[in-house]
């Protein structure tokens, strides 16, 4: 019995170790090159950002992470577009002034030369995306109440169009498209009026929650197998103008979005904390994202409760 007690006490004493500083960080992967560029079909070649990773145990600054001495180029169909460093923004590289528009269903290669290293990534741009229509459904009968006006029809006049005036949270907003052979779609939503009224009146939200409510957000990658995607009202919290973009994304964008989102928080079907996995980057010699997408959008106006925006 005494021996047992001694073993117990000894084990307890041996167990009583505090965590050492930095012991929650792994082998440091410092100075890995991070490329950041997304091409949008029909728009001019986009900027490229080049940064480095930093030690997670040290205080992090984006300015220090920026890489300013890389040579950056984009290649498409044997055409080479050399980028120049932006003198006003460290780590940002600008395309040539006369850079062409991004073509659909074309292959682009990003090359970043730094020291003796070449970082490469490739993307195949999706076909153009066109929203067939955006409708407001009756939430019970699921019948179409009305069709929203598009930018193609009215330009920025959509925000004043009667059809595009919405009352939170009435009806279901549904976007309809002809699905193409892309890996996935993704929505992005923007509240364009920065000081507009917060509309959500719910007991579950506290003041901190309201302060943290984002005016922009994105969905997880979506399959949109039926050609229809519905916008949830929980993503729309403010009165005023809303811009909703829908992207048909390439494989790189899809791989990154689905793998990085899975690491964000609790995932289903696993052990607590067990979903922290390295995202899929598809970048040779570095990490980051070089992706492409086709995009279309819709705008609407959410009426304020008080009459004041």
């Amino acid at each position: 019995m005494r021996l047992l007690a001694l073993v117990l006490i000894g084990t307890l004493l041996g167990c009583s170790t505090d965590r050492q500083p930095g012991s929650l960080f792994g082998a440091v992967a410092e100075s890995e090159i991070v490329v950041d560029a997304t091409l949008i079909v029909g728009q001019q070649l986009s900027d490229v950002f080049v940064r480095r990773t930093q030690d997670p145990g040290q205080s992090y600054t984006r300015a220090l992470a920026a890489v300013t001495d890389a040579a950056v180029a984009m290649v498409q169909n044997d055409q080479i577009y050399s980028y120049r460093a932006d003198p006003d923004s460290a780590g940002r590289y600008l395309p040539p002034t006369a850079a062409p528009q991004v073509e659909p269903e074309a292959e682009y290669e990003l090359l970043v030369y730094l020291d003796d290293t070449v970082i490469r990534a490739r993307t195949i741009t999706p076909p153009p995306l066109h929203l067939r229509e955006v409708v407001l459904l009756d939430e019970d009968a699921e019948s179409v109440l009305r069709r929203l006006k598009t930018f193609a029809e009215l330009g920025d006049g959509v925000y004043a169009a009667p059809e595009n005036q919405l009352v939170y949270p009435q009806g279901v907003i549904e976007m309809r498209l002809d699905r193409s052979a892309v890996p996935a779609y993704q929505l992005a939503l923007f509240s364009l009026d920065p000081d507009s009224e917060f509309l959500v009146d719910s007991d579950i939200l506290e003041d901190d929650d309201i302060d943290d409510f984002e005016r922009q957000g994105s969905s997880p990658p979506l399959d949109v197998g039926t050609g229809k995607v519905r916008l949830p009202w929980f993503a729309v919290g403010f009165a005023g103008r809303y811009l909703v973009k829908i992207y048909a994304v390439d494989q790189n964008w899809f791989d990154y979005a689905r793998s990085n989102r899975a690491s964000d928080g609790p995932a289903f079907g696993g052990l607590a904390g067990d979903n922290f996995e390295r995202p899929i980057f598809n970048v040779e010699g570095g990490i980051g994202l070089f992706g492409s997408a086709a995009v279309d959008s819709v705008g609407f106006f959410v009426l304020p409760r008080t009459g004041n925006l």
């Binding site: 929650l24 960080f25 792994g26 082998a27 440091v28 992967a29 410092e30 890995e32 991070v34 950041d36 997304t38 950002f49 940064r51 480095r52 990773t53 930093q54 030690d55 997670p56 992090y60 984006r62 992470a65 993704q186 929505l187 992005a188 923007f190 922009q216 957000g217 994105s218 969905s219 973009k245 992207y247 994304v249 964008w253 990154y256 979005a257 904390g273 067990d274 922290f276 996995e277 990490i287 980051g288 994202l289 992706g291 997408a293």
Partner: peptide, 15 residues
């Protein structure tokens, strides 16, 4: 558990 090896910055591509 999986520890953090580095910190980096990237734009969320949709927003």
């Amino acid at each position: 558990f999986t520890p953090a090896a580095a910190r980096y910055t990237l734009r969320e591509p949709a927003t």
